[in-house]
Design a protein around this nucleic acid. Structure first.
Ligand code: FES
Ligand code: FES
Lengths: 153, 153
DNA sequence: TTTATATAAGACCAATAAGGTCTCATTTGT
DNA sequence: ACAAATGAGACCTTATTGGTCTTATATAAA
């Protein structure tokens, strides 16, 4: 019951890109080094982030990654779910084949509740917010007032 | 990021025992069959439940399991954590060796928050409550008014 | 236009964890 | 004593995670 390494790495990566600002091209190696992510593994993770349009990847010499959205509009949930898929917590929630009475089960209802709670909280934290505080791999960054606050989407 | 099978089985098992009432001895096979849990696997799970004194195991012919506490005093959280250990969600929360700035990290703080939220919600649901509604493997049971409501511990 | 640098895509591999079984010992009712 | 049940832990199988490798492709710069 824990976030995968890939998920944590993705968060770090997006946080690093957020600090540099939307639209800034950063080499993969720089990110890997600063965020302590295995270089090749980051490549794989970045591809997933690109698939959901969070970043854009440019190839060739002087290639790298570019954040495509404003940090204030990116939620923690989005980044996490881009990597590990929609959070479910237990199997009954997704596949109704597991339990006999799925859909009408007191236990299941509790799991759905905590799952929604968890997703809501993660959805309520933007990378702009994270940037205003100290984090691993990153000193806090002063963010213009306009860009603080909760994510829109 | 999901509850293990063992965790789900444990919940079913305790729910079944709750329906029979505290102090009632039930054979392992009966539980395994009704709750659709592999017999031998249930044995292993039961041992973990016994270790935290949720149930008591009696050996020998006509042996089986006995619920040791009132369903209204057993929370979902307790049963789950008896099996999978304390819920953590991400590694930084437990082992500070993973990230560089653990203890003072915005990301980490969010994870701690959602983790506490999740644990609180699960802690707020008793098996007596679960019994009043329909569940997989179990028809709803009428529970005396006195025994409904939130868990004490 | 060649070369060096960088990523893409996916196959591939190693380590860990989950899910479950088996064996042998022990306990207890009859 | 014997049959019926569980205990404890080794053991096995499969799935997931975490990560690397290989070949191909794109681009900047010489
Ligand atoms: S639907 Fe799975 S526990 Fe009830
Ligand atoms: S402490 Fe692990 S992400 Fe910051």
């Amino acid at each position: 019951m824990r976030l995968t390494r890939a998920g944590e790495y993705a968060v770090r990566c997006v946080l690093y890109l957020s600090a540099k600002g939307k639209g800034t091209l950063i080499g993969r190696k720089e990110i890997a080094e600063h965020c302590d992510i295995p270089d090749k593994f980051l490549a794989k993770i970045a591809q997933q982030l690109a698939r959901v349009k969070l970043i854009e990847i440019s190839q060739g010499a002087r290639g790298g990654y570019v954040l495509k959205r404003e940090p204030r509009d990116i939620s923690l949930l989005e980044v996490v779910e881009a990597i590990i898929g929609e959070i479910a917590l237990n199997d009954c929630v997704t596949s109704s084949a597991v339990c006999r009475a799925s859909g009408n089960c007191a236990v299941n209802r509790v799991w759905i509740k905590v799952r929604n709670q968890l997703r809501d909280t993660l959805a309520g934290v933007s990378f702009a917010e994270l940037l205003t505080e100290d984090s691993c791999f990153l000193a806090p960054v002063s963010v213009p007032l306009d860009f603080r606050g909760k994510p829109k989407r």
